Simulated assay, not measured.
Amino acid sequence: MKKAPSQFVKFTKTKSNAAKKEEFKAEKRKYKKEREEYFEKKKAETRKLQGGTDGRSRMGKQAGDKPVPAPVINRPESAGTMPLNKYIAHAGICGRREAADIVKSGVVKVNKEVVTEPGHKVSPQDEVVVNGKKIFLAKNLVYILLNKPKDYITTTDDPQKRKTVLDLIKQATKERVYPVGRLDRNTSGVLLLTNDGELAQKLTHPSNEIKKIYAVTLDKPLDKKDFEQILKGVTLEDGLANVDVLAYADLKDKTQIGVEIHSGRNRIVRRIFESLGYDVKNLDRVTFAGLTKKNVERGKYRFLSEKEVRDLKHFRKGK
């Protein structure tokens, strides 16, 4: 069987069991060290808050890579000020960029005065009202990974009463969470939902180049000419579209394509193939920011482990 080009080996090459085992051990050692440093830092912070004494408090040993028993991570209220759009995002209403649009629309009041500047400074003591409803900073942070099925839209509310991804997780938490980024109605796969506005902003900002991998099924085999054109870049109505990696996921079936991309432009993967005359029959996001839908059935969800949350918050650009 013909081998895939070396730059596509990530989609086709499998590692030996021994190599996988060694990688697992190395990763386990790495995160064990990180956990120890993390809890030592927490202990130091606690001693500092208690005037230099250890308060006789001890933190229990953590469970390594296993999910934390409770899906909520506590965050103390900030004593300082922050931009109004950041405050709204931390209240679990939406992401920071969407919050800026809400502020500009004139539906936000601070201490009974309408404010239209997203950068307006507010503190936890201020009264902030959005669309007539008072909001509060979220103290309990929730992180949910959903394996989104088709026919669900990625929004918190739909005037047309269509099914939304929040319908699938309504039993998961009482906290108000929202999707990080978007998957269109006919796209399935990994979707993160949270009320952590700061993390949501980090994962959706273009400058951070968050990687996503998609499994694409086309209506006909992708020929060599179009394959090479996609690697060079395809000009769409909103500019040049580039992919990071392109590969035949199955060398015997060239309708099955693997695509790695960091662009967050709307429907970018579908539009790349459609511009060359292909119909995308199925589009599934298998990886987002290092998160996969492994062991999560379609339409089901799970809470992120403490390790996964830590990885997301300390990711490096392009990872």
Rank of each mutant, 00 (worst) to 15 (best):
G64M: 05
F39R: 06
S57E: 07
P83W: 01
R58W: 12
R96P: 03
V107M: 07
K86A: 10
S105T: 05
G80N: 13
P69Y: 06
A100P: 00
K104R: 14
M82S: 11
K61G: 09
P69L: 07
S105M: 04
D54Q: 06
R29S: 11
I73F: 14
E37S: 10
L49T: 04
S57L: 13
I73T: 14
K43S: 09
G60C: 01
E77R: 10
I73K: 10
A63Q: 12
T53C: 02
E34S: 09
K33T: 03
E98W: 00
A100T: 08
C94Q: 03
D65L: 05
G64T: 08
E45M: 13
A44R: 15
A91F: 01
A89Y: 02
I88F: 08
R56N: 14
H90K: 08
E98D: 13
V108M: 04
A89D: 05
A44W: 06
N85F: 08
T53V: 08
P67M: 08
V110P: 02
S78N: 06
Y87W: 09
K61M: 07
V103H: 04
K104I: 11
R47V: 08
K41S: 13
T46I: 15
L84Q: 07
N111H: 05
Y38Q: 11
I73M: 08
V110M: 07
E40H: 11
R96N: 04
D54N: 14
L49W: 05
A89T: 05
V115D: 02
E34I: 15
A91V: 00
K112F: 02
V103R: 05
Y31Q: 11
K48M: 11
K61F: 00
T81D: 14
V72E: 13
F39V: 04
G55F: 11
A91Q: 04
I93G: 00
L84G: 05
K33Y: 08
C94Y: 00
R96H: 01
D101L: 13
E36A: 12
A79G: 01
A79D: 07
K42H: 11
C94K: 01
N74F: 12
V68G: 12
P83E: 01
E40R: 14
P71Y: 02
P69Q: 03
G52T: 12
K61T: 09
Q62C: 02
V103T: 09
H90E: 12
S105L: 04
H90Y: 04
L84C: 03
A100Q: 06
C94E: 03
Y38F: 11
A91L: 04
Y87C: 02
G64A: 01
K48Q: 14
K66I: 00
K112A: 14
A89L: 07
N85S: 10
E34V: 15
